[in-house]
């Protein structure tokens, strides 16, 4: 009886450890964030070759970014196929903070990157030499990947002007 109980307990513990390993992997991938390095911008562009897309740079340390994320969250509800890539300039070690924001605005399913190099000047430069780090910052790439940029909260007018197809707004 005792042996059986011990066996069951050991099995339970093993099950627990196994579950835990699963939990580890789930916890490690509880968000969508990918590490943004000096090559990532080219990688993003390549993945959208021949297609237009919008790149949104943001940070948890930027109040106007919050306004933009809320706006984009609502816009994506109405336009779920909008090609939108998020890049957070916060260090990827702070992914939990960033994830909280994206959850609030329904943006957790978007392609999302976070800065993964303390040499932030190089990362900024890899995107745009003329970007000084102000946030939010948006880049739109048309089908031929001609780039248009904007500093500050993105507007309905700007998006309507940039995207070739008409967008639904509330």
């Amino acid at each position: 009886m005792l042996n059986s109980s011990l066996f069951q307990r050991t099995k339970c513990l093993d099950f627990c450890v196994a579950s835990l390993l699963v939990l580890f992997s789930v916890a490690a991938q509880a968000d969508n964030f990918k590490a943004f390095t000096a090559d990532s911008f080219q990688e993003i562009k390549s993945s959208y070759e021949g297609e237009e897309f919008l790149l949104g740079l943001w940070s948890v340390d930027c109040p106007p970014c919050l306004v933009e994320l809320e706006f984009m969250g609502k816009l994506l509800e109405l336009n779920p196929n909008l090609p939108y890539v998020l890049v957070s300039t916060d260090p990827i070690e702070q992914r939990e903070y960033s994830q909280e924001f994206l959850e609030d605005f329904g943006l957790t399913e978007m392609e999302s990157w976070m800065f993964a190099d303390s040499f932030v000047e190089k990362l900024r430069f890899s995107i745009d030499a003329n970007w000084y780090g102000e946030l939010p910052r948006s880049y739109f790439f048309d089908n031929e990947h001609e780039m248009k940029s904007h500093s500050g909260i993105i507007s309905r007018e700007l998006l309507s002007d940039w995207f070739s197809s008409s967008l639904k707004f509330q």
């Binding site: 940070s59 930027c62 106007p64 000084y132 102000e134 500093s151 500050g152 909260i153």
Partner: peptide, 8 residues
Amino acid sequence: QIDACPHH
């Protein structure tokens, strides 16, 4: 004219 955070 910018509705953004310069952090500067």
